[in-house]
Design a protein around this nucleic acid. Structure first.
Lengths: 225, 225
DNA sequence: GAGTGGTCTAGACCACTGT
DNA sequence: CAGTGGTCTAGACCACTCC
């Protein structure tokens, strides 16, 4: 019993077997280290891992307790769309639909201010079939270079990932019916239930870009718990 | 420059500022520790954190490199539904719709075998309004006690979390149109675009339960990147 | 074979917080 | 105030993997 993975496994076993019941405190790090025959640092590493997984709650002085409601955490990797398409075994494609300097609608203006924004609409393909339609607004002042980027060759999605480091972002997942635009670009019936991802990224407190990605029917995100 | 958070911030700064470009190797732990004036363990902690975040790639002997495609990782916490409703500021409610020992459809049988399964259908409410409809199959042999649980008082969702430790799970997110059942229970029009979560949990290689949760219109999951 | 990250140790000090 | 987790250190050995 020397590795932190072994310590974690043993503690997890005691929790799952109800030897240590939900809500109950477990021994402190020093005691556990003595019992299991390892350094306190090793126990700390193991317990930190379990705390991140949501299986235990830790607080200084109060000690460590088995979580009352073990919170499952699902981690989603959000790669560049092109890579996601390749990972699913398709040949990726891309088409720029429009690109214009426009006054944004109210919802976008609330996020990104009144300045003129670049509005980029594009379509990503998998094996030639529509995969995802992207409607994006970019703050030209916050993202120098986007004005001259060749968005016919490289998608805005990819250009931004490669050229604009960001510090913070928000992402949301919803379902929405296909509107006229989606029905046409994604080749589906008006009103079809589609999976939607909305993302906003910012740096230094400024919103760089906000995007709404609508996926073709049947799209699903999968991961393990 | 002594804390691992400071080290991480400094390394992140150099990456974001392109001082260390994507794909390029960065100094090894020992060198970095010397330069920044701290122990190697501290640098290790910082770099491990950045690797988990997807900003760098690390391999023994090959060293550490700035990731070519910084993979965004979104972590979703999946709490018990009742807690999720409370967190959104609503008063949670729950209604058991049906509960029967039935032969499962082919899709479920493929996952959970031929044995007789318990089929539980229920509805979760937020401030009295429909919030989520749940269609669940449970393997009675693998989950002893579910047969006698009072599922009118405690939702199957919560009963399982409290009584059945699991070791592994899969989760998927999709969009689907409301069928007759969803339209009726969630009080929406037939065909409405709804957000769907499908989950399967297992332990010791046996599938314990599989569930399809359909959320009322407007539902969205949000998180930060 | 050798360089790099992964980990363990023993000890120390500190920050937070319940009592 | 005192107990507990959080972290840092200096040194060591090991596992992996590229050359």
């Amino acid at each position: 019993m020397t590795s932190w993975q072994e310590v974690r496994a043993e503690v997890r076993r005691r929790i799952l077997s109800r030897e240590w019941a939900p809500g109950e405190p477990i021994p402190n790090e020093a005691d556990l280290a003595r019992e299991l025959g390892c350094a306190r640092g090793t126990v700390n590493r193991a317990l930190r891992s379990l705390a991140e997984a949501g299986l235990i709650d830790r607080r200084r002085k109060a000690g460590t307790r088995v979580a009352l409601h073990p919170v499952r955490k699902a981690t989603l990797s959000i790669p560049v769309v092109r890579l996601e398409i390749e990972e699913r075994g398709f040949i990726p494609g891309y088409r720029l639909i429009s690109r214009a300097r426009e006054a944004p609608p109210a919802a976008v203006r609330a996020l990104m201010g009144d300045g003129p924004l670049l509005h980029i609409v594009s379509l990503h393909l998998a094996d030639g079939a529509p995969f995802m339609a992207e409607d994006r607004w970019v703050d030209e002042r916050a993202v120098p270079g986007i004005g001259t980027a060749d968005l016919k060759a490289v998608s805005a999605n990819e250009w931004l990932v490669l050229n604009v480091p960001f510090s913070h972002g928000e992402i949301a997942f919803t379902a929405a019916p296909a509107g006229c635009f989606e029905a046409q670009t994604l080749d589906c019936a008006h009103g079809t239930a589609l999976f939607v991802v909305e993302r906003t990224t910012s740096a230094d407190g400024r919103t760089l870009t906000t995007v709404r990605q609508t996926f073709a029917p049947g799209y699903r995100i999968e991961t393990t718990l």
